[in-house]
């Protein structure tokens, strides 16, 4: 089954059609939206969007792991990652 992916372009189109901005301005607005989320996460601030979900930065301590292919023991360095927890509403909409 072929699935369509939603991209920045589709979001720009939605903003353009619903709100009457030019396609170019709508694209800038979409970029700005994601810029703010990225900016907050870069400052280790969590981003909570009602009815959608929460983005959070998780700090992972370094640990010892193994290369599953070679079995070689190696250290996995300390790092941060971004987690997303979907809201109840989003989960319900997806399961409808």
């Amino acid at each position: 089954m072929k699935r369509n992916n939603l991209t920045r372009k589709d979001l720009a189109k939605a903003v353009h059609e619903k709100m009457g901005f030019s396609l170019r301005s709508a694209g800038d607005l979409v970029d700005d939206f994601f810029f703010h989320i990225r900016h907050a996460l870069t400052n280790e601030e969590q981003v909570k969007i009602v009815h959608f979900g929460t983005f959070k930065v998780l700090k992972k301590e370094s640990r010892v792991g193994r290369n599953p292919q070679t079995g070689e023991v190696m250290e996995i360095s300390k790092r941060s990652m971004v987690s997303f927890k979907p809201s109840k509403e989003l989960r319900q909409k997806i399961n409808r």
Binding site: L6, D10, K18, F52
Partner: peptide
């Protein structure tokens, strides 16, 4: 509008791909 479009896409089983994000 952005969030609704994203939610609708996921509800339809589509993926979302935002470059750089």
């Amino acid at each position: 509008t952005i969030l609704d479009s994203m939610t609708d896409a996921l509800a339809k089983g589509e993926n979302i791909e935002i470059r750089g994000f």
